[in-house]
Design a protein around this nucleic acid. Structure first.
Lengths: 235, 235
DNA sequence: CGGATTCTTGACGAGAATCAAGAGTTGTGG
DNA sequence: CCACAACTCTTGATTCTCGTCAAGAATCCG
């Protein structure tokens, strides 16, 4: 019997951490998972497009997504990576129809849990706390964005890059034999730190020569983060 | 009797426009105003400090405020001006205690309407729609911030400055005999456009020589915005 | 092995911040 | 009414960070 019940739930990978779900009570989380639809995603699938009416709330279960905004002239303004546990499409929970603020695109194979607009309305009226959880999540995004803005405004490329390494290690990194491994190409690191590919490469090379990290194709290995935390904080 | 009723309301200046209040029904706005406390503000009074527990929701009635965030080393990261109609302290409406995300400081004489935490709780439970209005307001802030970030990342100082003039004219400007007058010093304009005082002055001087604007001490007069809109959009 | 992708390094230049010095404007007190 | 101080604005000279471009090296994959 318990087995059957668990089979009906959308399953979460082991070690799954979600700031959004953490804002809810366990029984609310269960209720959410019970009605979630699981969908596989593959790059370069666009999962939501800015400006379109929000029709679904979703949670990244596995994989990685890129969050960006399109400029009037078609360029992409990169905002951040989305990792497992990140939620999107908060605009869906409003009674008043709202539109997506940003575009989100899959960059790795993975899967998401989806709630359509009808499911959101039902959940919201049954669990009012959900509205507050959404609110907190949006506030967190705002907070992070202000931080990033400040970083870009008043820190040098070197400081920014060091900080990006530390944060990426936490968000995307996984343990390896020689330290934390971060699966990002130089181009992606540069995007994250909002600088040119060449500037990023130069600093990374310098740090490799200094023995602070080891670079491979599409991957950076960080034996220790302390040196980068130093670079970040002092000036 | 109607007169007595109106006297009990917090009064709004003529021509008052608030995106936040516009998200509510007229009767809800009346209910809010009925329990609001009016408070006078003078520079350089800090109206809320980032990191402190949010204890009041408030609306700028008259005057001007500066919204910024403090960096670890004590610098101010300017975010935007607040004009009459702007609301702050949304963190107050959460059941879960939250903290202010930004610091807000008065830069002109003026007045605000205030709701303390208790009043917010009472209003929220009586008018659930208020929660959604707050949500929308936060989303709007997020949207504006992404815009500003994009502007700083991928537009030149000249384009940024032109855009700031257009937006400031709308938000802070008032009609004058020779065009829209914006009461900002060069230093404040530079702050708004996130560039150095000197770079801002140079562009403004150039535009004055071209006859696109007239400068006075602490004030800029814009006969027409069309030229600046041109600079903003084409590239 | 050949082709595609990713990374590296150097040379160069544009854009914008900084610094310095002075001119113009406003307000105050004698 | 004038003199002086404080504030605001202007301009030029200088410096520097960082983006762009070019060319080639290293790595991976079929």
């Amino acid at each position: 019997m318990p087995l059957k019940k668990r089979a009906a739930l959308a399953t979460l990978p082991p070690g799954f951490k979600s700031t959004f779900l953490d804002g809810l009570m366990p029984h609310e989380v269960r209720a959410l998972l019970k009605v979630a639809k699981s969908v596989r995603i593959s790059p370069p699938k666009v999962l939501q497009q800015e400006g379109e009416p929000a029709h679904r709330l979703w949670l990244l279960r596995t994989g990685r997504v890129a969050v960006y905004r399109l400029t009037h002239d078609g360029n992409k303004l990169f905002l951040r990576w989305g990792a497992p546990g990140d939620a999107f499409g908060f605009a869906t929970v409003f009674r008043a129809p709202a539109r997506y603020l940003v575009t989100v695109e899959a960059v790795q194979e993975g899967s998401i849990l989806v709630w359509d607009a009808a499911a959101c309305q039902a959940l919201i009226s049954r669990y009012p706390r959900l509205s507050e959880a959404v609110n907190c999540a949006i506030r967190k995004y705002l907070d992070r964005l202000i931080d990033m803005f400040g970083m870009c405004q008043l820190q040098s490329t070197e400081e920014r890059l060091a900080r990006v390494l530390v944060e990426s290690a936490g968000q995307l990194g996984h343990a390896g034999p020689e330290g934390i491994e971060v699966d990002l190409k130089n181009e992606e690191v540069a995007l994250t730190a909002h600088m040119s590919l060449f500037t990023a490469t130069r600093h990374l090379s310098k740090w490799q020569r200094a023995g602070l990290l080891k670079k491979h194709r599409g991957k950076i290995v960080l034996p220790s983060l302390s040196a980068f935390k130093m670079i970040t904080s002092d000036t």
